[in-house]
Amino acid sequence: MVSRAERSLVGDWWWTIDKALVVAFGVLMTSGVVLLMAGGPPVAQRLGLDTFHFVNRQAIFLAPAVLLMLAVSFLTPRLVRRVALAVYVGSLGLVLAALEFGPEIKGAHRWIYLGPFGLQPSEFLKPAFVILAAWAFSEKARSDMPGTPIAILLLPVTIVPLILQPDFGQTMLVTVVWACLFFIAGLHWIWVIGLGGAGAVGIFAAYELLPHVRARIERFLSGDASESFQVETALQSFASGGWLGRGPGEGTVKRILPDAHTDFIFAVTAEEFGIAVCLAIVCVYAFIVLRGMLLAHRSQDAFCRMAVAGLVLMFGLQASINMMVNLHLVPAKGMTLPFISYGGSSLLSLALATGFLIALTRRRPAAGGARTEAYGGALVERPA
């Protein structure tokens, strides 16, 4: 236990973090390893790898991910902005490098290999972009800082390389989060209509000009099992598992599901552990989003308020898109389920984002030397 009187770095961190958020993230990380033991072995066996290849690699990546999350959570808001700027510049450079030097995988250039390690730089671009956009929007009131023009310029600079990869799932996620931050910043309803119209035009243009996007949308709308094998197979997992599941290791549909360890691990969870466990996972994601939005609402700092809102929106939207794909509610996007799907780049980037989130939701001294604390849902000012 750490005493409240202890003024060390660790002591201050322990008594200022939101422990409910940290516990929720811990639950998801632990669940990811457990659930990957169900979805990973069948894919590994089909590829001729060791049975627990993906489970072991996820566990290996989990240790540095936890350390990264904890280290970033010690940062002050000023250092969060600086780290985000460095990550953004580096990630954007690697995204551009992947376009030129990255291997083509499933028709896209999203990966770049640094020695024996593969990296998807767009994963790290997302949280850094949210921090920088929130900082720019929060500075719009300053006469010497063109915050809004910078925030507007950030969007095309970020999404154009993603479109060129192409990665329309990440592009859509980044754009929606940016639009939400624009709305939180107090844009006029005319802007809402204009942005909505621009988004509709962009989707129509992608459908007309890009065969990859058109094929994916048409497969989704056709409802033909032969045209959407993975999604239809995922739906069979939900039907096979029922409310309580077939039991750990008893699933059968996962043996023919190509991406059972990544995009469709939610469906594997439904078959082996039941819809009840899936609903519990949904509740954990919902708790993180709602708790984050509550903490953002309580924050007196404009930057922290917008950054926290943007981070939890990005986190919740990514989880929602993945689960909706598994339920055949939206076209397949190739987006992972946060902390549960297999993926080293995804795990490390999520650790970075959650570290930012924990750092920005820490209780800090308010103006006038008072410390703002939450008791019973109300804010109470105590002497510093």
Rank of each mutant, 00 (worst) to 15 (best):
L350P: 05
L173I: 00
S320V: 13
R291F: 13
F25P: 01
G107A: 01
G377H: 10
A276R: 10
G310V: 08
T30Q: 09
I340R: 02
L235K: 15
V43S: 05
L290W: 15
G376Y: 11
E271R: 04
A98D: 01
P365H: 09
V277L: 12
F54M: 03
L154E: 04
I105P: 05
G169Y: 10
A133G: 02
L350K: 09
E373D: 06
A234E: 09
I217G: 04
I203H: 10
P211Q: 14
G90V: 08
R362D: 11
W135R: 06
A5T: 06
V282A: 12
L67W: 12
V308S: 09
H188I: 08
K106F: 11
G245N: 09
A200Y: 15
L162W: 07
A59E: 04
T175K: 04
L350D: 04
L357S: 05
A260E: 00
P383F: 07
A359W: 12
P248T: 06
L21P: 07
V83D: 01
V27S: 13
V80Y: 03
S222A: 11
V277F: 15
R371C: 03
F204T: 10
H109Y: 01
V130Q: 02
I265M: 09
A307D: 14
G316P: 10
A319K: 07
L92V: 02
W111C: 00
L244Y: 14
A136Y: 06
V157M: 10
V33C: 06
C180T: 07
L257W: 08
T76P: 04
L329R: 15
C278T: 01
I131E: 00
L290V: 07
R7N: 05
R364T: 11
A307N: 15
G48A: 11
F168R: 08
T372H: 12
R305C: 07
A185G: 08
L68W: 04
F129G: 03
R364M: 12
G107S: 04
F264G: 01
R82T: 03
W15A: 00
A71T: 07
A84I: 08
L347T: 06
V66Q: 11
L70V: 03
F182N: 12
L28V: 00
D12S: 06
L187R: 14
T16F: 06
R219D: 05
A38G: 10
A225S: 15
P149E: 03
A200T: 14
Y207G: 09
L360K: 05
F238L: 14
W243N: 01
C278K: 02
F204D: 14
A332M: 15
A319W: 05
V308A: 03
I105E: 07
Q318F: 08
L154F: 08
T30A: 09
F315P: 00
Q300H: 06
I184Q: 05
I203K: 06
G247W: 11
L352S: 01
